[in-house]
């Protein structure tokens, strides 16, 4: 299998194009129907979120449901932004996401490189252990790790949300992904470097990492989004409200007894917008990274 893998970063050529173009694009038109129907349902929740965010208080729960608000009411956004230090929560979320992404990239690449190219008798069993952690339910470690953090005095700080990523906790999937990628790098490159006198660290830093850029960007993006969306971690470990992140801050709009849908939707839009923007800007990397790693198992 390894021999068949093209050098990472390239795609299949477009020989197919020549053959199918002669069949004409007309044959593809019936595809639009299922594609558009599917696309509609995939996008519907976001459209609804947007529509709800702009509705005035009386309209959100009006019946029958109407898509267009009778008049665009931006009040929800100002309430949402002003009510609970939205901008501070943005900053907190950003900080935690960036730091945990950096940590993930560091620890995952180191570990993946070891599993891919460094030999040891323990490698096989340890890799199996790594795969086993993929299947670990998060609750198994939740309460005991809370106790550990309490002993360390890390509660109500950002440490439980950032340090574990530097130690590869929860990165099993990324390590797996990067290992697949590293395995695709021809051994000859490392051999050449070794002959030149480069140590392992140098081989890792100057050969493996640069070649793995698409995969690293993918891992980074996924981890960023996962950290941005994480609500359980900050909920459990943070008590000072000034440290809250966006997913926790959004819950202020869902009181114990009833939900103010207008402001909740506005706040949701604000939370979700950066991720959508990031995705739109970087989706090329998302796709490219997965294309060169996930497809090969």
């Amino acid at each position: 299998m390894k021999g068949d893998r093209p050098v990472p970063g390239t795609h299949a050529s477009s020989t197919t194009l020549r053959l199918t173009v002669t069949r004409g694009r007309v044959a593809l038109i019936p595809l639009y129907v299922p594609l558009c129907i599917a696309a509609f349902f995939f996008v519907l929740p976001f459209l609804w979120m947007l529509s709800g965010a702009f509705k005035g208080p009386g309209e959100v729960t009006a019946f029958p449901p109407r898509f267009w608000p009778s008049h665009i009411d931006g009040r929800n956004f100002s309430t949402a932004a002003a009510g609970v230090s939205m901008w501070r929560y943005y900053g907190n979320s950003l900080f935690i996401a960036v730091v945990s992404t950096a940590g993930t990239l560091l620890s995952s690449s180191l570990t993946a490189f070891a599993f891919a190219h460094l030999r040891s008798r323990a490698r096989g069993p340890l890799f199996a252990v790594l795969l086993a952690t993929l299947m670990l339910p998060p609750f198994i470690t939740l309460i005991p790790s809370y106790a550990i953090y309490q002993q360390l005095g890390w509660l109500d700080t950002y440490l439980p949300l950032t340090v574990p990523s530097f130690l590869g906790v929860g990165c099993a999937f990324y390590i797996f992904l990067l290992r697949q990628f590293f395995l695709g790098i021809p051994k000859e490159l490392f051999e050449a470097a070794r002959i030149d006198g480069a140590g392992r660290l140098r081989q890792y830093a100057s050969i493996a990492l640069p070649l793995a850029k698409p995969a690293l960007i993918t891992v980074g993006l996924f981890q960023f989004v996962a950290s941005w969306n994480d609500f359980f971690g900050p909920l459990i470990f943070l008590t000072d409200s000034s440290k809250f992140t966006l997913p926790v801050g959004i819950r202020f709009f869902q009181s114990l007894y009833q939900t103010d849908y207008g402001t909740l939707m506005a706040a949701s839009c604000l939370t979700v917008a950066p991720v959508i923007l990031l995705f739109l800007v970087a989706q090329k990397f998302f796709v490219q990274g997965i294309a060169t790693t996930g497809g090969k198992t």
Binding site: Y146, D156, T239, D240, S241, Q254, S255
Partner: peptide, 20 residues
């Protein structure tokens, strides 16, 4: 210190246990 109601309630048992 404050939080949303549901989050506050969810944290209370943990905080009782930790003494915080």
């Amino acid at each position: 210190t404050y939080a949303d109601s549901l989050g506050f309630f969810q944290r209370l048992p943990l905080m009782f246990r930790a003494g915080t």
